[in-house]
Computed example of a mutant assay.
Amino acid sequence: MQTWRWKFSLGAAAALAASIALMAAVKADDLASVVAERQAGMKAMGGKLKEIKAFAESGAGQAEASADAAVLVATAKSIPGWFPVGSGLDSFSGKTAAKPEIWNDQAKFKAIAATFQADTVALQQAIAAGDKAGASSAFEAMGREGCGACHGAFRAKT
Rank of each mutant, 00 (worst) to 15 (best):
S33R: 10
M42L: 13
A14V: 11
K43Q: 11
D30Y: 14
A18C: 04
A28D: 12
K27W: 10
A54M: 07
K53V: 08
S19T: 15
A40Y: 00
G46M: 03
L10Y: 11
M45Q: 08
I52H: 00
L31C: 00
M42C: 06
L31D: 02
E37D: 09
A15K: 01
K43R: 14
L22A: 11
G46D: 03
M45Y: 09
V34E: 00
A17G: 04
M23N: 13
A21W: 00
R38E: 03
M23W: 13
S19H: 06
S19R: 07
K43T: 10
M23Q: 15
A40F: 04
R38F: 06
M42P: 02
A36C: 08
L22I: 05
A14N: 06
A13S: 15
A18D: 09
A25F: 12
A12M: 14
A32F: 00
S19V: 11
I20K: 08
A32L: 10
A12N: 07
I20G: 10
K27A: 08
A21Q: 04
V35W: 00
A14W: 00
A14P: 05
L31G: 01
A17W: 04
A28K: 13
L31F: 10
G47N: 01
A17H: 03
A17Y: 03
A15E: 05
I20F: 12
G47A: 01
L31K: 00
A17E: 06
A25L: 14
E37H: 11
L22V: 14
M23D: 14
V26G: 02
D30H: 13
Q39M: 13
I20Y: 03
L31P: 01
I52D: 01
A44M: 10
